[in-house]
Amino acid sequence: MKVGLFVTCLVDLSRPGIGFAALKLLEGAGCEVVVPEAQTCCGQPGYNSGGREIAKALARKVLAEFRDCDYVVAPSGSCSGQMKVATVHDLFQGEPDLPEFEKLAAKWYELSQFLVEVLKVERVPGKFAGTVTYHDSCSGLRELGVKMQPRYLLQMAGASIAEMDGAERCCGFGGTFSIKLGEISTRMCENKCESIRATRAGAIVGGDLGCLLNIEGRLRRTGDKDTKVLHFAQVIAGEE
């Protein structure tokens, strides 16, 4: 089974460890993983900024790079939403390459969904003794139905989960929103951090690096140097 790993631009640039954790998990479960070297970004920043043509160009680029894979997996609900939902429901509606994108969408998985629903893993390499709280990122949750999968995997690694109030509330990241409307974004993030603090968990875990950087940035700015901010892949791969 040939699995393409879509690393995502943020992971590539900022937290390569998440990419390697994903790689370890997939290879550990027996997948033959390919990582096309020319990959960059799914196009969502352009898409959500009104740059539709840029988004389409990048989607076509992703398609070309992963066409030959049996599956494509990304450690992000947001990029996966872009490639599974935005392409087929909007960007390529009524265009000749729609069937190609439908095929790509059908074999594209967010990492936790792939591990749980396709690979049906029963064991993960990571061991995590502490308590974590989980933030549900919006696209993964509302576009793809990512909810129980990462929690299930975290528990498999031995973590106990203290649910925060409003785990499904947006953290305020929203891509360029976090810069364009920074004050509102910061307030939304502060609301999220309040919920996190209230759980007294040692780590806040999520599945989208954008949200995690946002949350980490606010926690650190407000003097919290201790709470770990982790991608679930890092925890379950034992690479935190």
Partner: peptide, 13 residues
């Protein structure tokens, strides 16, 4: 600065 006014930006590795 819309970001960094109220949050730090965690630096890349």
């Amino acid at each position: 600065d819309g970001w960094t006014k109220g949050r730090d930006m965690p630096a890349p590795s």
